[in-house]
Design a protein around this nucleic acid. Structure first.
Length: 812
RNA sequence: GCCGGGGUGGCGAAACUGGUCAGACGCGCCUGACUUAAAAUCAGGUGUCCCCGCGUGGGGCAUGAGGGUUCGAAUCCCUCCCCCGGCACCA
């Protein structure tokens, strides 16, 4: 028997698969009845900002096992791959390496593609795409224009997050703890005109539809938190002097009688109107200006004492009819609710702190059911069983009842109504950077924002002399490109020089895979409706509030436009854990990236693939540890030796009943259940190891050959190269398309089994009994055991529990 | 503070709907075989404590802590501690 040569075997089979087009999946022919059992297996596409690391290896090997398993259990599997090649990660890599982003990105793609081939992943390479290619981004632009027409994309001035290092606007989803997700620089607040997608229009649906998809609970929880739906009421406070009604949003209308002052956010548009011409004007406007200059980090510092300024105005509390003073303070956020609040210091910590600071009155409106109402002046946190007090006719009502009663009453008076508020903000997607998809509009003095006609797409990303970030969009420096006639009136116009966030590119790529060469449309409705929603999506949980939310929004909007027939992109989602090294997740900036190349060269792709999945549960974080891979290489060599020996010996009787035959069938059942139902990938490897161990101990068993075939067949999704080679040596061919083995129940049903005999719940003996004994017979056998007898002694048995096929328990 | 996930040997982990003395499989470690030697390979051992007649012996304790339900709990319930993640001046 030859020595196991991983490099030669892997190269051999990779070229066999390529020649056979083994993993290419044609689309169904439109109009004909397509295969019913089809499966869309998708993993998040990589940024070509460097090479693959072990995190990618885990991600794509998982997808690969699922792909092979589904293919061999009778499914038609679409499993494509592409590159998220536009955007900051790729551009920053280019800056580091001092080259043009396109050249760097394309070089990285070549390298990543080589690594993917070397690992032997079963990808349909005919469907490869990259976001930076005009054939792709033409359709990103086309989809943008459809969203623009539908009013889902718009431009407005708004407070935005600005990264001073990357010199661009960031979406809220790209700011983590006040810092840029990419570079870690502290984010500044800026007031800028920007492009937004109206994702808030789908807030309710994005929340509700989480119940319709099979996603990890924690991911749903993250999205629910992010969307942040609050039910409450909008209440109008009358400002008679100026004939204004100021709305507030509150979730605690039951505390209305305790509202003793009123606060506006500094950015509230009515603030100047309230104070113009009064002697408060100067002080208030100074406060507003000073506040606008404060950084976001300063504003949200919880340790800082509250600041604020009185406007000199009063509004009327609609419940009490009393005037309450109107203040301006930055603890009220313009982006949430109405940018104004009714302050109830007795029942809100923040309002209380503000009242203390400025000597404002505190009035209690709720009290624990049995408590004496206190004489006021204190802060009373919300309890579980409280009733309204000092609240007119509503006094005595339980809080929740009082809340709806007050809202109902206000509604009758025309100054209140139930209302819902969200934390979610519209998605800011324009970037002042070079390496992104150009936004296809032209600014015209006469016509305003004019879309570039579909027929002129794509608007190609122009060459510029210096693409480095400088605050101004780099595209604007190419004057020849910038100045074009207005598509509507023909007068001189100016192109949009900002580019799109890379998350726009990835919000629809999974649709393009269905028809990547379509030159007439981004995709065919019939094809996307056939393949989508994605049957199984696999990727990092770090995209929970970004990509995964944006893609859901895109699909909902495209559904409304009639472009797709479904409302959720990813039916099932799985997150692989982080592969960490030195206690933190692998990243280039930390210099702790472990790539697969050296390992593949030393141990072969099969051992690397097996090891990354054997390390632990795939959805839990794992610390990269190279010690064990030697053990996995040992297993592959052992498999090689044992199967080669079995192949050389006489075939034996496949139907023979033997311990090894039973083990083989049990292993089939275990691996099938783990991969197919439980989505658990480490335990199947352990089960196959057990089978191989048992085979190596019983090489003369009549089922030895069957056990060898079974082990090879079951290990194929994990280690496809060595499996294919061994399969051939066993006399088979094209294992990648062989039906998945099926466990024969006759081998799983045993004639006898080990009955556990317990006394007072402690196992005292295990005896072999025939499978079909009655309860009474089982008890008799159990009682006969000498070991059990010793424990029964002369005690009286009070109760006997019999669990058929498992145990007998005597309770004394 | 609110929401979600988790805590099992020296290490990575198993135990799937409460039921085979919890710890499969692997790493590491120990012993032995082969070898001049080492590596590789193969065989055996390895939670912890105690008892003895030293055996394919007997017993106790062990799944973050404490309580409960149950004939029986890593698994279900309650209280608490710790770790990870999300949200948080969101009214």
């Amino acid at each position: 028997m030859e020595y196991y040569e991983s490099q030669a075997i892997e190269a051999k089979w990779q070229s066999v698969w390529e020649d056979a087009g083994a993993f290419s999946v044609p689309n169904p022919v439109l109009g004909e009845t397509p295969p019913e059992r089809h499966f869309y297996m998708l993993e998040m596409l990589p940024y070509p900002s460097g090479e693959l690391h072990m995190g990618h290896v885990l991600n794509y090997t998982l997808g690969d096992v699922v792909t092979h398993f589904r293919r061999r259990t009778g499914w038609t599997v679409l499993r494509p791959m592409g590159y998220d090649s536009f955007g900051l990660p790729a551009e920053n890599a280019a800056i580091r390496e001092r080259g043009h982003p396109r050249e760097i990105v394309e070089r990285n793609i070549v390298n990543i593609r080589r690594q993917m081939h070397r690992l032997g992943w079963a990808i349909d390479w005919d469907r490869e795409l990259a976001a930076h290619e005009p054939e792709y981004y033409r359709w990103t632009q086309w989809l943008f224009l459809r969203l623009l027409e539908a009013g889902h994309a718009y431009r407005r001035e708004a407070p935005v997050n600005w990264c001073p290092n990357d010199q661009t606007v960031l979406a809220r989803e790209q700011v983590v703890d006040g810092r840029c997700e990419r570079c870690g620089a502290e984010v500044e607040a800026r007031q800028l005109e920007q492009w937004f997608f109206r994702i808030t229009a789908y807030a309710d649906e994005l929340l509700a539809d989480l119940d319709t998809i099979d996603w990890p609970e924690r991911t749903k929880a993250i999205q629910r938190n992010w969307i942040g739906r609050s039910e409450g009421a909008e209440i109008l406070f009358r400002l008679d002097e100026l004939d204004l009604d100021l709305p507030v949003f509150t979730t605690r209308a039951d505390t209305l009688f305790g509202a003793t002052f009123f606060v506006l956010a500094p950015e509230h548009p009515l603030v100047p109107r309230l104070v113009v011409g009064t002697h408060a004007e100067e002080e208030v406007m100074r406060y507003v200006r000073r506040n606008a200059a404060r950084s976001a980090a300063e504003r949200i510092d919880p340790d800082e004492e509250k600041t604020g300024v009185f406007t000199g105005r009063h509004v009327t509390n609609p419940a009490t009819g009393e005037p309450v003073p109107v203040w301006v303070s930055d603890y009220v956020l313009m982006e949430y609710g109405t940018g104004a609040i009714m302050a109830v210091p007795a029942h809100d910590e923040r309002d209380f702190a503000f009242a203390q600071r400025f000597w404002l009155p505190v009035r209690q409106a709720l009290a624990a059911r049995d408590a004496e109402p206190s004489d006021g002046g204190g802060y009373v946190p919300h309890g579980s069983d409280e009733v309204l007090v000092e609240s007119g006719d509503f006094s005595g009502l339980p809080a929740e009842q009082g809340r709806s009663a007050i809202v109902e009453w206000l509604r009758g008076l025309g100054c209140g109504a139930p209302s819902v508020s969200f934390r979610l903000r519209d998605w800011s997607f324009s970037r002042q950077r070079y390496w992104g998809c150009p936004i296809p509009v032209v600014y015209c003095a006469a016509c305003g924002i004019v879309p570039v006609p579909d027929s002129e797409l794509p608007v190609l990303l122009p060459e510029v002399e210096n693409y480095r970030p400088k605050g101004e969009p780099p595209l604007a420096s190419n004057e020849a490109w910038l100045h074009v006639p207005c598509p509507a009136c023909g007068e001189p116009g100016r192109r949009e020089a900002e580019t799109m966030d890379t998350f726009v590119d990835s919000a629809w790529y999974f649709l393009r895979y269905t028809d990547p060469d379509d030159a007439e449309a981004p995709f065919e409705r019939e094809l996307v409706d056939y393949w989508l929603p994605v049957s199984q999506y696999i990727g990092g949980i770090d995209h929970a509030t970004g990509h995964l939310l944006y893609s859901r929004f895109f699909v909902k909007a495209l559904n409304e436009l009639g472009l797709v027939g479904f409302r959720e992109p990813f039916a099932r989602l799985f997150h692989q854990g982080w592969v960490q090294f030195d206690g933190s997740k692998m990243s280039k900036s930390k210099g702790n990236v472990i790539g697969p190349d050296d390992l593949v060269e030393a141990y072969g792709a099969d051992a690397v693939r097996l090891y990354i999945l054997f390390m632990g549960p795939a959805d839990e974080d794992m610390e990269w540890n190279e010690n064990g891979i030697e053990g996995m290489a040992r297993f592959v060599r052992r498999l090689w030796r044992v199967v080669n020996e079995a192949a050389a010996s006489p075939a034996g009787d496949a139907a023979a009943e033997s311990p090894l035959a039973r083990k083989a069938h049990a292993t089939i059942a275990k691996v099938t259940d783990d991969v197919g139902r439980r989505f658990q990938f480490n335990t199947p490897i352990a089960a196959i190891m057990e089978l191989v161990n048992e085979l190596s101990r019983a090489p003369a068993d009549p089922a030895a050959r069957f056990a060898a075939e079974t082990a090879v067949s079951l290990v194929q999704p994990y280690a496809p190269h060595v499996a294919e080679e061994l399969w051939q040596r066993l006399g088979g061919e094209r294992l990648w398309e062989q039906p998945w083995p099926v466990a024969d129940p006759a081998f799983l049903e045993r004639d006898s089994y080990e009955l556990v005999v317990q006394v007072n719940g402690k196992t005292r003996d295990r005896i072999s009994v025939p499978a079909d004994l009655s309860d009474e017979a089982l008890i008799a056998r159990a009682e006969a055991s000498p070991r059990v007898r010793a424990h029964l002694d002369d005690h009286a048995v009070r109760r006997t529990i019999v669990v058929p096929r498992k145990l007998v328990n005597f309770v004394l």
